[in-house]
Amino acid sequence: MTEVNAPTEEVRDWDALARAAADRGDSSDSVDEVRQLLSFELAGSPYAVPVERVREIVRMRPVTPVPRTPDEVRGVISLRGEMIELIDLRRRLSLGSIEPSRTTRIIVIKTKDDDVVGLLVDAVREVLRVTEDAVRPAAGSETGTVNDLCKYRDEFVSILELDKVLTLDA
């Protein structure tokens, strides 16, 4: 079993991560519905988003602040000419903000309207393959940003409700 650590290099063609995850899985257990989740770290805890919503993962780059926008919008980044809003996921989930570090990554997420948006996370971990029966409801979420937890190894990973997270009160 290979361990995929937080990538130290920019993972543009991040299919490699997904492939690594697929290789790890036992090919015979195709009976259960398997979900693939990209896990990452925020304030020391694991979070995850469905891999099919992830377009790419890039390193921190210059951010241009946008006046008169909510606090959690850090600004706009230029990604190969595309102009993309960058949301500080820590601020969005009220986890307090920190300065970007060596492991900080931007996960580029596809939105419902065929747009993309960048999510700033502390570090990217790995792609998880989980069966539905590993998913448990998360009780007591007031904001609705996390409705499910998923048990992986001996940790509970919070699965983000992306559409909720990406709805900002402007």
Binding site: T111, D115, L166
Partner: peptide
């Protein structure tokens, strides 16, 4: 370029 993301049309800006 249009600015992509949840804010959509950012008030005061035509794009970036």
């Amino acid at each position: 370029k249009p600015i992509q993301g949840p804010l959509k049309n950012v008030r005061g800006f035509a794009g970036a």
